[in-house]
Design a protein around this nucleic acid. Structure first.
Length: 298
DNA sequence: TCCCAGGCGGTAG
DNA sequence: CTACCGCATGGG
């Protein structure tokens, strides 16, 4: 059993991080406890006073030789613990009262640095789908093609590497309930495995545009999915993925078009860029979480 | 029963 | 270039 303690962190709230719509593999156990899978590690996080206790298990993955990261370094990287959010928050809060309020509401949000490959497949599955079903499909993929990890007597499954997922035929994927996304996942897996699209190369690019261009070559990756991947796996904080919630909150706050659906993407992107400058991606997460949670309650 | 869900790819104008 | 439409599936 691995263990790591994070003492009194700034800008760190489990519910804000895991429920703000960026990830699919974390499950709430109770108010102060979540369990999730990062690469080939099962991780449990529990809040205790102002500290966070991480426990878990790592399995050595026979297929990849480069996953020799320690428990601590997996967590530090994934939660991006070296980044100081107070600077972002300070900058964004000054923009207007909406940002100020949304940041107060979701003060503990952090943008995770998720695995690129997993993020690509997950967001291809997200197309024209709902979050509970997206999570179910991903769990099935992991159960069938991932590796088993035992933690506290329970079985968990890692997200399969491209080699493992390439064993699935289109029909196999259809059986898992992917629907019309089966062919897209199949084709994308092949393209990545053959390095027709080279994920390592993408990680090393320094231009967001170049990265996006590469991602768009993948079947099932369009503008929205590409932006989610850029933000949630490659930490491009300047991108602005537009979904129905973001469109809604931006229209409500800034545009006031009677017909929300008429607000076009280009207009939204330009507005976001001019308002939030290089921090559109983070601003979007605060606004998204604020508006969505507000809608759930009263 | 119908409608929708964190779009995309294809086709037509 | 923009505008639409079909797409599998499960839940409300």
């Amino acid at each position: 059993m691995e263990k790591f303690v994070l003492k009194n962190p700034d800008s760190f709230n489990l519910e804000h991080i895991f429920e703000c719509g960026q990830c699919f593999r974390w499950n709430r156990i109770d108010n102060n406890k979540y369990i999730g899978i990062i690469k080939n590690a099962v991780i449990q996080v529990e809040k205790n006073e102002s500290d966070y206790i991480f426990t878990g298990e790592i399995i050595s993955n026979t297929n990849s030789k480069n996953d020799i990261l320690s428990f601590d370094s997996i967590i530090k990287y994934y939660f991006d613990l070296d980044t100081n959010y107070s600077l972002y928050k300070e900058k964004l809060s000054k923009i207007d009262k909406y940002l100020e309020q949304s940041i107060k509401f979701g003060e503990g949000i952090r943008i995770l640095k998720q695995d690129l490959w997993e993020c690509i497949i997950s967001f291809i599955i997200s197309a024209n789908n709902n979050i509970p079903r997206i999570k179910k499909i991903i769990e099935k993929i992991c159960y069938n093609y991932g590796e088993k990890i035992v933690f506290n007597g329970n079985d968990y499954y890692s997200f399969p590497l491209p080699e493992a997922l390439s064993k699935a035929t289109v029909d196999d994927l259809r059986t898992l309930g992917l629907g019309f996304r089966d062919q897209r996942v199949y084709n994308t897996t092949k393209k990545i495995l053959s390095k027709e699209v080279d994920l390592c190369a993408i990680k090393n690019m320094n231009s967001t545009e170049k990265m996006r261009e590469e991602l768009l070559k993948l079947d099932g990756v369009g503008p929205k999915v590409a932006d989610c991947i850029l933000l949630f796996a490659l930490k491009r904080l300047d991108v602005f993925p537009i979904d129905v919630w973001v469109r809604r909150v931006m229209n409500d706050l800034y545009i006031h078009n009677e017909n929300e659906e008429k607000v076009n993407k280009k207009e939204l992107k330009e507005l976001a860029e001019s308002k939030f400058s290089g921090l559109s991606g983070i601003a979007q997460q605060y606004l998204f979480y604020w508006k969505r949670e507000e809608g759930k309650g009263a």
